[in-house]
Amino acid sequence: MARQQSRATIEAEIASLQRKLANLDKAQAERIGKIAVKAGLAGLDLTDAQLTEAFSELARRFRKEGAPEGREQSEPKPEGEGRSERKGNGTSEPDANPSGSSKKAHGGEE
């Protein structure tokens, strides 16, 4: 019969996983932030609430369009209540202009 791990060992593993999760969160936040700046969001005078709602709408859109079959999608939990899986096009890059509109329509140059 296998020997059980001690409480201290399990707590150390949990702490290690929490650090890994924090690092992943930081990397994803940086990635999303860079994309938001590239898309021109940094130049807009928006409140955090407005940005949160816009990102929530975007997440809902991708959950509906990109949901793998047989997998139920749930609404994101409010901040601090858990994590949701990454959804979207399955790559680390955003879809190239998924709306079909030009950059000029968003205040950028083509």
Rank of each mutant, 00 (worst) to 15 (best):
G90L: 04
R71A: 00
S102R: 14
A59M: 07
G107I: 13
I10A: 10
R7T: 09
K87V: 02
R86T: 07
P94V: 06
G82T: 12
E93K: 13
E75P: 04
S56P: 00
A105G: 05
R7Q: 12
G108C: 08
A15C: 09
S74H: 05
S99T: 15
P94Y: 06
L41W: 13
G43V: 03
E30F: 08
S99L: 15
G66D: 10
T52Q: 14
K103S: 13
A67L: 02
S16P: 01
L24M: 09
A15E: 15
K20M: 12
R86G: 02
T9A: 15
E65M: 00
R19L: 11
I10C: 05
R71K: 11
R63M: 00
A67D: 03
S102T: 15
D48G: 06
K87E: 02
R3S: 12
A96P: 00
G66I: 00
K77F: 05
G40L: 03
S101Q: 14
D48C: 03
L44D: 02
G40W: 06
L46F: 02
G40M: 04
K104P: 03
L21Q: 12
F55N: 07
E30D: 09
L46T: 08
E57M: 05
L21A: 08
R19V: 10
V37W: 04
E72A: 00
A105P: 01
Q28Y: 10
A96V: 13
E109T: 15
E75W: 02
T9V: 11
S99K: 10
A39D: 10
R31Y: 01
Q18G: 04
E93F: 08
A96T: 11
I32P: 01
S74Q: 05
Q50V: 02
E110G: 08
A59Y: 03
L41P: 06
G107E: 08
A8C: 05
H106K: 14
G66A: 15
S99N: 14
K103M: 10
S92P: 04
A49F: 05
L51G: 13
T91I: 04
S99Y: 08
E53D: 12
F55P: 07
P78I: 08
S99M: 13
A105K: 15
E69H: 01
A42K: 14
Q4K: 15
G107V: 12
R31D: 08
P78M: 03
A8E: 15
I35M: 06
A96Y: 14
R7H: 10
E79T: 11
A42W: 07
P98V: 11
E72Q: 00
P94K: 07
Q50A: 08
K38R: 12
R3M: 11
S16C: 06
A22W: 02
R7P: 08
G70V: 00
E30K: 11
M1G: 13
A39C: 05
L24C: 07
I32S: 05
D95Q: 10
Q4S: 11
E13F: 05
K77P: 06
E109M: 13
G33W: 07
S56V: 01
A15L: 09
L21K: 11
S56Q: 08
L17D: 10
A105S: 13
E79F: 12
E11M: 11
A2F: 08
E30Y: 07
R71V: 05
Q4F: 10
